[in-house]
Amino acid sequence: MGTAQGFGYVRRADGTVVITHHGRVAGTLRGGRAAEFLAEIEDDPQLVMARWTGNYRRGNERTASQHPRNRG
């Protein structure tokens, strides 16, 4: 399917869903999890795929790098 922002997914004939990120496999869903993913994908596909693979920013990376404990 679409990979405009890096994520894409392929629905296989056996019901398996393979999620890719920039062409590499980021996750494989089977059975009930695949069905749940396909039901949820209609809202915002990129956000849903990022959330399901755990590959999304939480917004605190810059703040954490500037913390005194992380300055080295």
Rank of each mutant, 00 (worst) to 15 (best):
Arg71His: 04
Asn55Trp: 09
Ala26Tyr: 05
Arg24Pro: 02
His21Ala: 00
Leu29Ile: 12
Val18His: 01
Arg24Thr: 15
Thr53Phe: 00
Met1Lys: 07
Gly31Lys: 10
Val25Gln: 10
Thr53Trp: 01
Thr63Glu: 13
Val25Ala: 06
Leu29Glu: 08
Pro45Ser: 09
Gln66His: 06
Arg11Gln: 14
Glu36Cys: 04
Arg58Met: 11
Gly54Gln: 11
Arg33Glu: 15
Ser65Pro: 02
Asn55Leu: 10
Ile19Gln: 05
Tyr9Cys: 06
Leu38Ala: 02
Gly15Ile: 04
Ala39Asn: 10
Arg58Phe: 13
Gly59Leu: 12
Gly6His: 03
Glu42Tyr: 07
Ala64Asp: 09
Val18Trp: 00
Gly27Lys: 10
Tyr56Arg: 12
Gly31Val: 10
Arg51Tyr: 11
His21Pro: 06
Arg58His: 13
Gly54Phe: 03
Trp52Lys: 06
Asp14Ile: 09
Gly27Asn: 09
Met49Pro: 08
His67Asn: 15
Arg71Leu: 15
Leu47Gly: 13
Val48Asn: 00
Asn55Ser: 07
Gly32Asp: 08
Glu40Met: 00
Thr16Ile: 14
Arg62Cys: 06
Ser65Arg: 15
Met49Phe: 03
Gly23Met: 05
Arg57Ser: 03
Arg71Val: 13
Leu38Glu: 15
Tyr9Met: 14
Arg33Lys: 14
Gly6Arg: 05
Glu40Ala: 02
Ala39His: 11
Gln46Met: 14
Ala64Phe: 05
Ala39Gly: 12
Ala64Gly: 15
Thr20Val: 12
Leu38Asp: 13
Thr53Lys: 15
Gln66Ile: 06
Asn60Arg: 14
Gly32Met: 05
Val10Ser: 11
Thr3Tyr: 04
Trp52Ser: 04
Val25Pro: 04
Phe37Ala: 13
Arg51Ser: 06
Gln5Arg: 13
Met1Ala: 13
Leu29Trp: 07
Ile19Lys: 04
Gly2Arg: 12
Arg57Ile: 11
Arg62Gln: 12
Arg12Glu: 02
Ala13Pro: 03
Arg12Ala: 04
Val48Phe: 00
Thr16Cys: 04
His21Arg: 14
Thr20Tyr: 06
Val17Trp: 00
Pro68Thr: 06
Ile41Ser: 10
Phe7Ala: 11
Arg24Glu: 11
